[in-house]
Design a protein around this nucleic acid. Sequence first.
DNA 1: ATATCACTTGGAGTTGACTCCAAGTCAAGC
DNA 2: GCTTGACTTGGAGTCAACTCCAAGTGATAT
Lengths: 125, 125
Amino acid sequence: MTISEVSKKCNVSADTLRYYEKAGLISFINRTPGGVRNYTEQDCKQIEFIKCMRSAGLSIEVLRKYFELFKRGKRTLKARRDLLANERENLQVRFKELQDTIRRLDYKISVYDKALKSKDKELKF
Amino acid sequence: MTISEVSKKCNVSADTLRYYEKAGLISFINRTPGGVRNYTEQDCKQIEFIKCMRSAGLSIEVLRKYFELFKRGKRTLKARRDLLANERENLQVRFKELQDTIRRLDYKISVYDKALKSKDKELKF
DNA sequence: ATATCACTTGGAGTTGACTCCAAGTCAAGC
DNA sequence: GCTTGACTTGGAGTCAACTCCAAGTGATAT
């Protein structure tokens, strides 16, 4: 697959794909004799994984570390597991915060709905 | 309350408080005759609200719009309500995504735990 | 063989959200 | 009246994560 095909398929810009490669999130992409990147299905899966983790808020730096460990082989299995477990805990915290914020917004919206009915109220902010 | 007191109380840097003011997220902070900001308890509540919304991912721009509507008075009640309801929906989407990502990480961690037990496996990424 | 077009690179520019800095002001203590 | 220390301002700097650009290359279509 060319970079533009992967870009469409994974909904990530070609520039971002090249950026991820430079940043160490993707390595060893095959090239055609002419030097053009030739992505495999496996590469796409990895890109989807990166996309998913990025959208949840994992930093480029954390992902770079993860894939760097990967390059160092089997002996880093535990380190990688722990890195993921740690990020998982961070997400769990953010998950709870997000839940609270949604609840807070729900309450605020309900206050607005009341104010809208009683025709003359105003809120503090 | 001075800016440094609010900074401690709300755990937001003084620079950030001034930045929020410049950005239109806070307005009409009282000043002492000498020109020093003098925050009220109400101001703090608003800052806590901003902090909460920011940490959930609402942009400065969205919050600026919200408080701008506020300045325009009661006739913007509905618009403000709708703005909040819209942001709430966005958060709900992110909430579900986050949940999925946590599940995905849990699965991946479990695969690592299996690999660690069987002593010779490696994963794809 | 020439035009087209998608690709390549290194590097510069952009965006959002702060964060820091220099120069100045004001109130309080000595 | 002078020092100290917390405040003020406008503006510059930083950081992460892209995003864009110019100049060049290679395969394909006419």
